[in-house]
Every structure is written in structure tokens, then in C-alpha cells.
Amino acid sequence: MRWWHEERTKDVEKLAHPADGTQWKRFDEMYPQFAEDPRNMRFALSTDGMNPFGDILIQGPKQPGFEIYVFLKPLTEDMTKL
């Protein structure tokens, strides 16, 4: 849980770990008390909208189309419980 903070090579020129990213750094700036403990976990989801075949991901008469929130709803419910 602490490797990213204590052991990784911190190279300002390369993105080698999510902690090197601007989003991670911005989050730490916004929540410094949370950032103090390197054991605290951050959860992030990233998508580039890739759909290589142009297919709808769930087929059928009630398919949701390309609305990503349909796929994220179960995830957000689980994260809320945690």
C-alpha cells in the first residue's frame, strides 16, 4: 500500500505510475489531510471512449445505446457501500 510513496522512482519527466499524473497531484492538493497517509486508496476510472467495431455493447430490444452511466451504475452502487 505504501510502495508508490516510498519505493518508486520519482521521475518528473515520465509518467511511470498514476501518482505521477496531474490528476493524482491535484487530488492531493485538494485533500491534503487525505494525502498525508500513503495507505489511503484512490479510486479512478478512465475511458477514452474506444469502441473499435462501432457496436452497441449490450444488444437486444432494451439496449441502452452508448450511455456509459448504464454500465457505471452497479459500480457506483458498490463503491457507495464501501
Rank of each mutant, 00 (worst) to 15 (best):
M41D: 02
E67F: 08
S46N: 06
F71S: 13
Q59C: 07
D11H: 03
A16F: 00
L15Y: 11
R42G: 03
P61A: 03
F27G: 00
G49R: 10
L75A: 10
A35H: 08
K10M: 03
F34R: 05
F43T: 03
R2D: 01
G60T: 07
E77V: 15
D78V: 13
N40H: 05
D28V: 09
T47P: 06
F53I: 06
R2N: 13
K73R: 09
R26I: 03
P18A: 11
P74D: 01
G21I: 13
V12S: 11
I68V: 15
W4K: 06
F27Y: 01
P38C: 12
P74A: 08
H17Y: 02
P61G: 13
V70D: 12
H17I: 09
D28Y: 08
F27C: 06
L82Q: 10
F27L: 12
M50W: 11
A35D: 08
G60Q: 07
L15Q: 10
G49Q: 02
M50T: 11
A19V: 11
P64G: 13
I58A: 07
G65H: 09
F27K: 01
T9K: 04
V70S: 10
I68K: 04
L72M: 09
F27P: 00
P61K: 02
K73V: 05
F43V: 10
I58L: 09
P32K: 06
D20C: 09
K73E: 04
V12F: 01
Q33I: 11
Q33M: 11
L82H: 08
K25P: 14
D28N: 15
E77L: 15
A44V: 03
H17M: 12
K62Q: 08
Y31I: 07
R8M: 11
V12K: 00
M41I: 15
A16W: 00
D20W: 07
N40M: 12
W24E: 01
F34I: 03
E36K: 15
A19F: 00
G54H: 01
R26K: 05
G65W: 08
P18N: 03
Q23K: 02
W3Y: 13
M1H: 12
D78Q: 15
D20E: 07
Q63V: 03
Q23H: 11
K14Y: 06
D20N: 14
W3A: 15
D48I: 03
E13Q: 03
I58N: 01
N40Q: 14
D20I: 04
E67I: 13
I68L: 15
